[in-house]
Simulated scan of single mutants.
Amino acid sequence: MHARPFRSALYIPGSRPRALDKARTLPVDAILFDLEDAVTPAEKATARETLGHELGAGGYGDRVRIVRINALSTEWGARDAAAVAEMACDAVLLPKVNGPGDVQALTKLVPHLPVWAMMETPGCVFEARAIAAHPAVQGFVVGTNDLAKDLNARVGAGRGELMAALQMCLLGARAAGIVAIDGVYNAFKDEAGLQSECRQGRDLGFDGKSLIHPAQVAVANEIFAPSEEEIALAERQIAAYEEAEAAGQGVAVVDGKIVENLHVATARATLARAAAIRELDAGADATVSAGG
């Protein structure tokens, strides 16, 4: 579990100055500045210039700034990479990753930036552990729409059709200790459906949710944060275990359940995550109050 929150990761088209400006005021943990799917071929070159200018202007506060380029196999990929190498961003997101070799090719073009990998092909699912183990890779973003297309899957509400792929990507990320962000929920006006899918992603173990609309941010931020009940339970588990340990016992009991050292480790991680979220949210509020 990562102390730095990644509850919400919002896609913003790199070609739209108004959207790029609005992102400065949104309470998101990460922004996925998009040069790929959200930008038409005719806009690709202009989008690079627009995004570079807006990132250079700053004002994004503590939000993690990740730029998604086009795949290196496309006519735009290499030029995107060259442009991103000069941008004021925190990482570059590479689509259509099929193995660690794709990541290595990008690091030759952008050697100073961490890489995030779009996990969106059947091939990448089988290579999830190897991709995550590449020293440049900092996180995964699952591309559920592309996965469903390549699988010819008809994905229902419970996403059972994608569950094997979701868990393989998550296993690879956890084996390497990197961030894992769940795929998008397409029906951005369906709040109940978004809540259900966020809970599923959270319960699977994802760090957060990738989003396609600002209206989805509040739901993801709430669901991927520890609840007050979870924080209170963590505090009670730690206190009970420390009391038992002082008495020479190796386990404690809270609410009728055994609490061992591994449960205490999880409880401490929960409290650290809650503290990091409070600090991040306070900083975001201060940024918005100051006008971005």
Rank of each mutant, 00 (worst) to 15 (best):
A3N: 07
R4T: 09
P5T: 00
R7W: 00
R7G: 00
G14W: 00
G14Q: 00
G14C: 01
K22M: 09
T25V: 11
L26C: 06
P27T: 06
V28C: 10
D29M: 02
D34S: 00
L35I: 01
D37G: 06
A45L: 06
T46G: 12
A47Q: 00
R48S: 01
E49M: 09
L51M: 01
L51E: 04
G52Y: 01
G61E: 10
D62T: 10
I66A: 13
R68A: 01
I69Y: 00
G77F: 00
R79A: 02
R79L: 04
D80N: 01
A81M: 02
A83D: 00
M87W: 06
M87G: 07
C89W: 03
V92T: 04
L94H: 07
V97G: 04
N98Y: 12
P100C: 07
A105S: 02
L106C: 10
L106S: 08
L106Y: 09
V110H: 04
P111H: 08
W116V: 08
M118K: 07
M118I: 12
T121V: 07
C124R: 05
V125K: 01
F126P: 08
I131L: 06
H134P: 05
A136Q: 07
V137S: 07
G143D: 08
T144W: 08
N145L: 09
N145V: 11
A148Q: 03
R154E: 11
R154I: 13
V155H: 04
G156A: 12
A157T: 15
A157Y: 14
E161L: 08
L162E: 04
A164D: 12
A165H: 09
Q167T: 15
Q167N: 15
G172I: 04
R174P: 05
R174G: 08
G177V: 00
A180F: 06
D182T: 12
V184S: 10
Y185S: 08
A187Q: 15
A187K: 15
R199Y: 06
L204V: 14
D207Q: 07
D207T: 04
D207F: 06
K209T: 06
P214S: 11
P214Y: 12
P214H: 14
A215N: 15
A218T: 03
E222Y: 03
I223E: 02
I223V: 02
P226K: 00
S227I: 05
I231R: 11
A234C: 12
A234D: 11
R236G: 13
R236W: 12
Q237E: 12
A239W: 13
A239T: 15
A240P: 07
E242Y: 02
A244D: 12
A247L: 15
G248P: 11
G248A: 14
Q249T: 13
A252D: 10
V254P: 11
D255Q: 13
I258N: 08
V259L: 01
V259T: 00
N261R: 15
L262R: 11
L262C: 12
H263M: 11
T270H: 05
T270K: 07
R273E: 10
R278I: 14
D281H: 10
D281Y: 06
A286H: 13
A286V: 14
T287M: 15
A290H: 10
A290C: 09
